Amino acid sequence: MTKVLGLARLNKKLQKLPAAAEAAIRAAMEQGANEIVALMKSLVAVDSGDLRDSIGWTWGERPKYSQAIASVKSADGKLALTIFAGNSKVRYAHLVEFATAAHENGGIYAGTMHPGTKAQPFFFVSWRALRRRTKSRITRAITKSAKAVAAGR
């Protein structure tokens, strides 16, 4: 029977890898989410500021009444991050992003025409602009944590 030199030390290092990688991935995801949210807030049309102030991110599911803009979840489900816009007061993020068509009003304004609104994109342009950078950052974090564990740090 052949004995493998250093096997016990290797196994110890491999046991440390998941925790080290998770911490590095979590930090990279947070940094990416902060960048995406900051870009969204800088691009959104501001009237009262309520929509801008409702944009954010959270670990796990989106807050009640908000609209999920992007969600990322690890294969094991431990790391799930959601970028969102809206709250109980602001439920119109999708109308700002995608526009509204001209339509006849109802209710107390029945019989009048609403001219519609033009699209003022802010969330998907931000997501598309920064998702590749964020994904690369996460990949680098995984590699860096693996190298750190292998080096014994």
Rank of each mutant, 00 (worst) to 15 (best):
T2M: 07
K3V: 11
L5W: 00
L5N: 13
G6T: 01
A8T: 04
L10V: 05
L10A: 02
N11R: 06
K12M: 05
K12R: 13
L14D: 00
Q15L: 05
Q15P: 00
L17P: 03
A19H: 06
A20M: 09
A20W: 00
A21M: 13
E22W: 06
A24P: 10
A24R: 15
I25S: 11
I25G: 02
M29Y: 15
E30H: 04
Q31S: 09
Q31Y: 02
Q31K: 10
L39S: 08
M40S: 03
M40P: 01
M40E: 12
K41C: 10
S42G: 14
S42I: 12
L43Y: 09
V44C: 07
V44E: 06
V46F: 12
V46Q: 10
V46R: 14
G49D: 09
D50R: 13
L51D: 08
L51M: 08
R52A: 14
D53K: 12
G56M: 13
W57A: 00
W57L: 01
G60R: 08
G60W: 10
P63D: 07
K64Y: 11
Y65G: 01
A68V: 13
S71G: 04
S71P: 01
S71W: 01
V72G: 12
V72A: 12
A75H: 04
A75Y: 02
A75P: 09
G77W: 03
G77Q: 09
K78V: 06
L79Y: 12
L79R: 14
A80G: 01
T82M: 06
I83G: 01
I83P: 02
F84I: 04
A85E: 08
G86C: 09
G86L: 11
N87L: 05
S88L: 08
S88G: 07
S88I: 05
S88C: 05
S88F: 04
Y92P: 08
A93I: 12
L95C: 13
L95E: 11
L95P: 08
L95N: 10
F98S: 14
A99R: 04
A99K: 03
A99P: 02
A99W: 00
T100V: 11
A102D: 12
A102E: 15
H103A: 08
E104D: 06
N105S: 10
G106Q: 08
T112G: 05
M113V: 14
M113H: 11
M113I: 13
H114T: 09
T117K: 07
T117P: 04
A119V: 13
A119G: 13
Q120P: 02
S126H: 07
S126V: 06
A129V: 06
L130A: 05
R131C: 01
R132P: 00
R132V: 02
R133Y: 07
T134H: 02
K135F: 05
S136D: 13
S136L: 11
R137I: 03
I138L: 01
R140H: 13
I142A: 07
V149Y: 12
V149T: 07
V149I: 08
A151E: 10
